[in-house]
Structure formats: structure tokens, C-alpha cells
Measured scan of single mutants.
Amino acid sequence: DLSALRVEEVQNVINAMQKILECPICLELIKEPVSTKCDHIFCKFCMLKLLNQKKGPSQCPLCKNDITKRSLQESTRFSQLVEELLKIICAFQLDTGLEYANSYNFAKKENNSPEHLKDEVSIIQSMGYRNRAKRLLQSEPENPSLQETSLSVQLSNLGTVRTLRTKQRIQPQRTSVYIELGSDSSEDTVNKATYCSVGDQELLQITPQGTRDEISLDSAKKAACEFSETDVTNTEHHQPSNNDLNTTEKRAAERHPEKYQGSSVSNLHVEPCGTNTHASSLQHENSSLLLTKDRMNVEKAEF
């Protein structure tokens, strides 16, 4: 173990290094160091905050020279020094078990990766560091076993998940096959086929009936047209017969005018059967003409 005197000496050296690497504005270890034209180094955030307070150039807090945003430059070497100082402080805390008085939040800088452990060898070769390295080497064999167990647990979990997924996939297939086998029997399929065939026959029977009705309507229309044509021909046949009657009536009127007047009046009210309204109107006109002729003949006879 380190003596108290040596611990104090190391602590004083760390404090001196820390004062050199402090920012003059925030009085902390410089984060993202930036250098000016006057070779003074500050935190990048502190300098941008200072420049944004005034429009135009501002003055350096140490030498009062003008500073602009374009004049600022990043210093990589200074950032490396800060990183190495942080590593020294971490090693000091691990070796002594004491917390550094002016320690900052170094938890963000710590890294437990194997590459980081290899890099620590180049920091300080001390008894405390050696003991700590031995402890780490002793704890390393235990870690692979834990990793193997965790991997086995994960693989077993994956296997159970896969088996569950396969079961879920197989179950719908089985149910679907069961439904297909038990849903419709052979008799049901035959009945469905016969039902479809009967429906098709009914459709075939319905369509000819409609065509037959249309044919019957067409035949009825044709018969009505033929009947009207026969009526017209009958009226045409009746007209010459009426003319013959008129000639006979004229002759009778010349011989017996008194008797014919009474008979002509009675004939006005008689309509021949089986004739249309057109034929009756023609008869009325003929009878009126005959009456006028008879009157003329009677007057001539009187004179």
C-alpha cells in the first residue's frame, strides 16, 4: 500500500496539472479547448457565450486583445492532455480508494470495455495498479461463464418462442383441414349439385314461356288486323247491294208514291245487322237523297 506522504505528493502534482488545464472563465477543466490569436485557451462554450454578448469583436479576458469567431481554432494537443489527466485522476481514485477533492464528473469518461483496460497499462506502473489488474484478471474467467449461461438462457427462450410460433402455425392448418373434411358430406355435395341443376332447368323453362307469350301476342295482333281488313271488305261488298236497293226503291216510288213515303220513313230507323257505323252513315245519306228525289217527283206529278 501507498504511504500517506506519497499520496499527498501525487495529489499535489495532480492539482498543479489541473490548474494549468483549467479554463480562466469557468475555472474547470477545459472541455473542447479553443485557442485565440494571443495563444490563450478557453472552453469553446465559454468563448461563444462571451462573443454573443456583444456585437462585433470582444476582448480576451487575459490580455484584452480583440477576439472574433473566425480567429478561434481548435487545439487537439490540449484536448489530449486533458484526457490523460482524467485517466490519471481515475487511476488515483481506484488505487487509494479516496475521492479526489477537486474531482469532476468523471463517470462519463469511464469505460469498462476490454480495449480501455489494455490502455490503462500505459498509465502508471504502481503496486495498487498491479493489484487491481490481478483482481480484474481473476474476475475475467467468471465473466465468460456468466456470458455462457446468459447465452444458453437466451437460446432456450428463443427455442420456446420458436416452438410456440410453430404450434400457432400448425393449429390453424389443422382446424382448416378439419373444417374441410367435416363441413360438407358427400350427400350434401350431391344435393347441392341437384339443386343447381334444377335451378338451371327452371331458368331454361322460364325463358321459352316468355317467348311463347310474345308469339301469342303477335298472333293476336295479326288476327285483329285481319279482322279489321275483313270488316272493310264487308262494308265494300254491302255498298253495291245498297245501291241495288236504292234503284228498286226509286222504281217503286215512281209507281206508288204514297205507299213509299211511309216505308221510307220506317227504313230510316232500321239498321242492317253486321255493318259498322260507317255503313250506317252512308245509308242515312242515301235515304235522305231518296226522300228529296221522291218529293221532286211528287211535285212534278201535281203540276
Rank of each mutant, 00 (worst) to 15 (best):
D1G: 05
L2F: 03
A4D: 09
A4T: 09
R6L: 05
V7G: 01
V7L: 06
E9Q: 03
E9G: 01
E9K: 02
E9V: 00
Q11K: 10
N15S: 06
N15H: 14
N15Y: 15
M17K: 00
Q18R: 00
K19Q: 06
K19N: 03
K19T: 03
L21S: 04
L21I: 02
E22G: 01
E22V: 03
E22D: 01
P24H: 00
C26G: 00
C26W: 00
C26S: 00
L27M: 03
E28Q: 02
E28D: 09
L29M: 04
K31E: 08
K31N: 06
E32Q: 04
P33R: 00
P33A: 02
V34D: 00
V34A: 02
S35F: 15
T36P: 09
K37M: 10
K37N: 13
D39Y: 06
D39E: 02
H40L: 01
H40P: 00
I41L: 15
F42C: 00
F42L: 01
F42V: 01
F42Y: 15
C43G: 02
C43W: 00
K44N: 04
C46Y: 01
M47L: 12
L51F: 05
L51H: 00
L51I: 06
N52I: 00
N52S: 06
Q53L: 12
Q53R: 01
Q53H: 01
K54T: 09
K55N: 13
G56E: 10
Q59K: 03
C60W: 00
P61H: 00
P61L: 00
L62V: 02
K64N: 03
I67T: 03
I67M: 04
I67L: 03
T68N: 15
R70S: 15
R70T: 04
L72R: 03
Q73P: 05
Q73K: 05
Q73H: 10
S75C: 15
T76M: 04
R77G: 15
F78I: 15
S79R: 08
S79N: 02
Q80E: 12
L81F: 05
E83A: 10
E83K: 03
E84A: 05
E84G: 14
E84V: 04
E84D: 05
L85I: 11
K87N: 15
I88V: 10
I89N: 11
I89F: 05
C90G: 07
C90R: 07
A91S: 05
A91V: 00
F92I: 04
L94I: 10
D95N: 00
G97D: 04
L98S: 11
L98F: 05
E99V: 09
E99G: 02
A101T: 10
N102S: 14
F106L: 12
K108R: 15
K108N: 05
K108I: 11
E110K: 06
N111T: 07
P114H: 05
H116Q: 12
D119N: 10
I123F: 15
I123M: 14
I124N: 11
Q125K: 13
S126I: 01
Y129N: 05
R130S: 15
R130I: 11
N131K: 09
R132G: 08
R132L: 04
R132P: 11
R132H: 06
A133D: 02
K134I: 01
L136R: 07
Q138L: 13
Q138P: 04
S139I: 11
E140V: 01
E140Q: 04
P141R: 08
E142D: 12
E142G: 11
E142K: 11
N143H: 13
L146W: 10
L146F: 02
L146V: 10
Q147H: 06
E148A: 02
S150C: 07
S150G: 04
S152C: 08
S152I: 00
S152T: 11
S152N: 11
S152G: 13
V153F: 09
Q154K: 13
L158H: 13
L158R: 05
L158I: 14
G159V: 04
G159E: 10
T160N: 10
T160S: 14
R162G: 08
R165G: 04
K167R: 08
Q168H: 12
Q173K: 04
R174M: 12
R174W: 13
R174T: 12
V177I: 04
D184G: 12
D184Y: 02
S186Y: 03
E187K: 02
D188Y: 01
V190D: 15
K192M: 14
A193T: 09
A193S: 08
Y195C: 09
C196Y: 02
S197N: 10
G199R: 06
G199V: 13
D200N: 13
Q201K: 09
Q201L: 12
E202A: 14
L203W: 07
I206F: 06
Q209H: 09
Q209R: 13
Q209P: 01
G210E: 15
R212T: 11
R212K: 07
D213E: 15
I215M: 05
S216T: 00
D218Y: 07
S219A: 05
S219C: 15
A220T: 10
K221N: 13
K221E: 07
K222R: 13
A223T: 10
A223V: 11
A224G: 05
A224D: 11
E226G: 10
E226K: 04
F227V: 15
F227L: 03
S228F: 01
S228Y: 09
E229D: 06
E229Q: 12
V232I: 09
V232A: 04
T233I: 14
H237Y: 12
H238N: 13
P240L: 11
S241G: 05
S241N: 02
S241C: 07
D244E: 01
K250N: 09
R251H: 09
P257R: 10
P257L: 09
E258A: 04
K259M: 07
K259E: 11
Q261P: 10
Q261R: 04
G262D: 13
S263N: 11
S264C: 12
S264T: 12
V265D: 13
H269D: 05
V270M: 11
V270L: 00
E271D: 03
P272T: 15
C273G: 07
C273Y: 15
C273S: 08
G274V: 01
N276S: 13
T277S: 00
T277A: 08
S280C: 12
S280I: 08
H284L: 03
H284Y: 07
S287C: 06
L289F: 08
L290V: 10
L291F: 10
T292I: 14
K293Q: 04
R295S: 11
M296T: 13
N297I: 03
V298A: 00
E299D: 09
K300T: 11
A301V: 14
A301S: 14
